[in-house]
Design a protein around this nucleic acid. Structure first.
Lengths: 255, 255
DNA sequence: TGAATAGTGTCTATAAGACAATATCCC
DNA sequence: GGGATATTGTCTTATAGACACTATTCA
């Protein structure tokens, strides 16, 4: 190969048609939920599936993901980020299909007006997410029904949801996606509850508080909770401006 | 939307044709390098581009990525992982194209037999990678020529390489991808050098050694370096079996 | 006053940075 | 022996976990 010319082979490229599926996550009552709908047509009729659309000509993937949420659930302005492109040959019994998966995060109070959470009778619902794998190992996820049993998922959507959970877990610590799941003002307890629901484990209250307050990402609103039966907590909001990232120390001389 | 049926719209899906581009990274002489080739045809003739192929009918994306490396550089068995799908409308002047980017990691001694590293005269080369952004902010990357000037990159390949670097940086600490860049047996110093080249900053020698030895990922080979002009270091190999992940502590009772 | 949670202060355990001392190799 | 790097051990500092104590709200 040495010295060969290496032409870029995308010189003659076909028009592509792709689908986009969205894993919309929200935390309701301290539990992680995912938007899904029962399929009305074959294949996998009656199984639960993620909202998805076929990519329209000239449409960006990001736009298609937003369109899927707006068309299916009436949601606009939701945080959306690309997750992974799934292309396993047997993933669709009708033939080879490739889907670009996105994940979205939305505050519970912004979606509960549009849908009934966990309503097993409805054909579009937020269903509790259950992952079997511990830690960071990854794997497929299940969506539960009212009785706590796993709903049967269509296609490879169990894998897609599982990867979305894994991705969000990984980004929770070093990004600000956690705030997408909360209203504009929130007490620290709710922020911790969101983190615990996503991570699937309890967090230390003291160090969580310390870490969050030290991150510089929170600003006191001056407001406090209302109508509590206990001491009302300070409400915080997300600080849009990111503080300077702490550069890791390296070989500094001791004073 | 309540109660609506939400059919999965991928019921009628077109055949798709996609391209796959590969960011092949290696660390040569303590510097991060990326495989690239000069384009021989328009558009962007003469600019440097990532090796890529058009997805063949029935071919998986992963296979296409491996094929790109084998066809272009004679490399087989390289570690490859999906990076991101790029679909910006203007990314290819010939029209709308979508490419699924992969990144690959290979040990320098496994690729230097196939290519001349940094040889500016060759049309296929490993070029040093330069990123302008500090920390984890992300952004485009440059490939340098022998004089240290930035080679002009075709399409959005600067963005693709930049994202690959960012991804590898992020996964270095919690995955085992670093070992892909080393031969079977290696001294700790080389492992640290690899990490520093990827992260773009120096690491503390003492804590790096402690962390690596405590990770359980390293096994002493019993062999030592040869032909050194200094005390030869112990050679380690990557322990295939992953030790039990350390579960984060939470509210354990103090003894 | 009591229940319940917010918020603060302190102690401990762990991991990382900084140094120093010793060990081995080749010349 | 001298130069160079490996390897080990100790001290310091930063952060997280654990606990205790005070504060504030409503019933």
């Amino acid at each position: 190969m040495k010295g060969d010319v290496m032409p870029h082979e995308t010189d003659q490229i076909d028009r592509v048609a792709l689908s986009v599926d969205v894993v919309l996550l929200s935390v309701v009552d301290g539990r992680l939920h995912c938007l899904a709908a029962r399929r009305a047509a074959a294949p996998h009729r009656g199984r639960w599936a993620l909202p998805g659309v076929v990519l329209a000509p000239g449409e960006t993937l990001q736009h298609a993901a937003a369109r899927a949420l707006e068309t299916r659930a009436g949601l606009r302005g939701v945080f959306l980020e690309q997750l992974f492109t799934f292309d396993a040959p047997g993933r669709d019994p009708r033939g080879r299909t490739i889907t670009v998966a996105y994940y979205g995060l939305v505050a519970a109070d912004a979606i509960l007006g549009e849908l009934e959470a966990g309503d097993g009778a409805s054909e579009v619902a937020l269903a509790p997410v259950d992952v079997d794998w511990p830690g960071e190992s990854g794997g497929p996820a299940s969506l539960l029904d009212d009785s706590g049993a796993a709903r049967t998922l269509a296609f490879d959507h169990a894998d897609i949801i599982g990867l979305a959970v894994q991705r969000v877990r990984g980004k929770l610590d070093y990004s600000t996606i956690g705030f997408e799941l909360l209203p504009a003002a929130f007490p620290l307890r709710d922020l911790q509850s969101i983190h615990e629901a996503i991570l699937g484990r309890e967090l230390n209250r003291d160090s969580f508080r310390r870490r969050m307050l030290a991150s510089g990402l929170l600003v006191e609103t001056g407001e406090r909770e209302r109508d509590t039966t206990y001491r009302p907590a300070m409400l915080y909001r997300f600080a849009a401006e990111v503080p300077q990232p702490p550069t890791p120390r390296t070989r500094k001389v001791r004073p």
